[in-house]
Amino acid sequence: MPPSAMPHRETRPIYAVTLRLLAMLAGAIMFASVKWLSEHGVHIVETLFFRQLFGIPIALAGVMLGPGLGALKTRNFSGHVSRATLGSLGMVLNFGGYILLPLAEATTIGFTMPIFATLLSVLFLGERPGVHRWAAVIIGFMGVVVIVGPGHHTGVTSLGIAVAASAAIVTACVSLLLRQLSHTEESSVIVFYFTLLPLPFLGLAMLWFGQAHDTATWGMLLVLGLVGGLAQLLMTSSLRWGPVSLVLPMDYSALLWSTLLGWLIWQAWPGPSTWVGAAIIAGSSLYILWRERVNHRQSIDREISVP
């Protein structure tokens, strides 16, 4: 169904915000599970495979409760393949960042995604951000410098920062791809194909990396897949019921959940530089989001004023 023919959807702001907050909690649990599993001898290939495998029922439920199974007959299969390929790379890097860094620091570096999305929109979409957005980008990178500078929290390594920052860059690329794919595809369908398509390749890799595990580890792998799929579904649904400008700022609640889980499981508490850097990055990203909203409203006003 073309964008112009998409039916008008009711807006439910409180419901949308609640879904997004729950999505951030589910995502934080997923990344904590990834870190726990890596410390208990689970290879990252196994983690990726079971994340996708156990996420299939959740993704399928999202399609059935949304547009229905008929929506899976897509005319843009190549777009789904591109999204799944790039998304899988992003997932590898994201998981790697959380394995190498404390939860709070890895989450904070992930907040740089809107900053990289701005840079990539210039390179690939020909957008021309104004001085306000460029200033926000520069300030955001200053926040990263604060985190990785002298006096940072124990456990923050250069390799971990590099992997987490690479994850943010790839995730920004995925966001640009999703802009195009969402013009013709339902969000739940995109999530389903992202979950399904990498499985054959991961299943083949499991011939070399699959291992036997104890009951606790299998239970955590199941939790990983279920909460990972639930996080995807909740994030998708939140954007269905609320505008981006309202919903996306809720993502910063992930830092609170990650900090709490890091303290409960690993007794790790972020240092002062992480809190300062997080505030700088969050402020710059929120400002970018606000400028996007302002520019969007101005473009609408100009279209209305044209006779």
Rank of each mutant, 00 (worst) to 15 (best):
Q180T: 10
L181C: 05
L181F: 06
L181S: 07
H183R: 15
E186T: 05
E186S: 10
S187E: 08
S187H: 06
S187Y: 02
S188R: 11
V191E: 04
V191R: 02
F192H: 03
Y193W: 14
T195M: 13
T195E: 03
P198H: 09
P200T: 05
F201K: 09
G203W: 07
G203I: 03
A205V: 01
M206I: 00
M206H: 00
M206S: 00
W208S: 01
W208Y: 00
W208C: 00
F209W: 05
F209N: 00
Q211I: 00
A212Y: 01
D214M: 08
D214Y: 07
T215Y: 05
A216H: 07
W218A: 06
G219W: 12
G219V: 08
M220D: 04
L221H: 03
L222T: 14
V223P: 08
V227S: 12
G228C: 11
G229F: 01
G229W: 01
G229E: 02
L230R: 05
A231P: 09
A231H: 12
A231M: 14
L233N: 13
L233K: 05
L234G: 03
L234P: 04
M235H: 03
M235Q: 09
L239Q: 12
S245V: 14
S245A: 15
L246E: 08
L248F: 13
P249W: 10
M250G: 13
M250N: 07
Y252K: 02
S253V: 14
A254M: 14
S258M: 11
S258A: 15
S258G: 15
T259P: 10
L260K: 11
L260W: 12
L261K: 11
L261Q: 07
G262W: 09
G262D: 13
W263I: 12
I265T: 08
Q267V: 01
Q267K: 12
P272K: 14
S273R: 15
W275R: 10
A279G: 09
A279V: 04
I280R: 13
I281P: 04
A282F: 03
S285T: 02
L286K: 02
L286G: 00
I288A: 04
W290A: 08
R291T: 10
E292G: 07
E292W: 12
V294T: 12
